[in-house]
Computed example of a mutant assay.
Amino acid sequence: MKIQQIFTDAGLRSTKARIAVLNVLTNANSALSHSEILEQMSSQKEFDRVTIYRVLDWLTEHHLIHKISGENRAWKFQLSQSSYSQIEPDSDKKQFLANLHQHAHLHCTSCGKVTCIHELKPQFPKQVLAQYHVESIDINIKGLCSDCNHP
């Protein structure tokens, strides 16, 4: 999907910085930290680290990307698998997209690669959900990825 189409489907305003950050995340093989994104954008001198932080916060707030708890409490960011084009008219867009990011993540303890596992979703007893509104879930499974797990 083209980057501009993501903003169009969401009814959101794109900027040069938002497009650049989303482009980096779209082309990434796994979740990236702020510093990894900044490093990939180093040739684009007009974007400083504060601008990138603000863009990441904005993209997360609008559910175009999601953040994953990484090593040493550093966040990693990844393009959301869902899109605004999947949402039925008259539904709560933000709640729909927030619910889609309730899955597990595999963290490689060697190379740091993070992979979303959409098939593994938590199940809560109804009495828990009646007492608490779940906004996000962060399940992290740590181990070695197939590239690092060589005997």
Rank of each mutant, 00 (worst) to 15 (best):
K93L: 00
P89Y: 01
H63T: 03
L97M: 14
Q40L: 15
E71F: 09
L59H: 02
D138Q: 14
N29P: 04
I19E: 15
A98H: 01
I52N: 04
A20M: 06
L64R: 03
H63C: 11
I52S: 02
Q78V: 08
L79F: 11
D48C: 01
H101M: 05
F124K: 04
Q40S: 13
K94R: 05
L38Q: 12
D57E: 13
Y132L: 09
Y132D: 00
E39D: 14
H133F: 03
L32V: 09
K45M: 00
M41I: 09
E46A: 07
G11C: 08
L106I: 08
E135T: 09
K113L: 09
T60C: 06
Q44H: 04
I68A: 07
C111A: 08
Y132N: 03
K45G: 00
T109A: 13
A31S: 11
L129Q: 05
Q78S: 10
Q86I: 00
L97P: 03
S43K: 09
S43V: 04
C108H: 10
E71P: 05
Q44N: 05
H105S: 07
Q127V: 07
E71H: 11
E61I: 01
F96G: 00
Q131G: 11
L97G: 04
V114Y: 09
V114A: 11
N140W: 00
I52A: 07
S80E: 06
F96A: 05
R18I: 00
K94I: 07
D9N: 15
C116Q: 10
C145R: 13
S33T: 15
S82T: 04
E39H: 13
K67F: 12
V21A: 06
F124M: 06
H107T: 04
I37P: 01
P89E: 09
L79R: 13
S82A: 14
Q78R: 11
A17S: 15
H105K: 07
I65M: 01
Q127W: 05
V50T: 12
K113S: 12
V114R: 10
S43I: 01
I137K: 04
H118Q: 06
C108N: 10
I117R: 10
E71A: 13
N23V: 05
I6F: 00
C111H: 09
S136P: 00
V114N: 12
E135R: 09
H62S: 03
L59C: 06
F96I: 02
T109Q: 15
D9E: 15
D48V: 02
V21E: 06
S35P: 00
T8M: 04
L59I: 05
E46W: 01
S33E: 08
G112R: 08
T60D: 12
L12Y: 10
S85M: 03
N23E: 15
N140R: 15
C145V: 12
G70W: 10
L100D: 06
W75Q: 13
H107R: 10
K142S: 14
L144G: 02
L32M: 14
R54W: 01
V24T: 15
L64Y: 07
H118A: 06
R54H: 09
Q40V: 07
C108E: 11
Q86C: 00
H118D: 10
C111K: 11
D138A: 08
I6T: 08
R73C: 07
L12V: 05
C111W: 10
I52Q: 03
A17R: 13
H66F: 15
I68L: 05
K93V: 01
E135P: 00
S91Q: 15
F47D: 02
S30E: 11
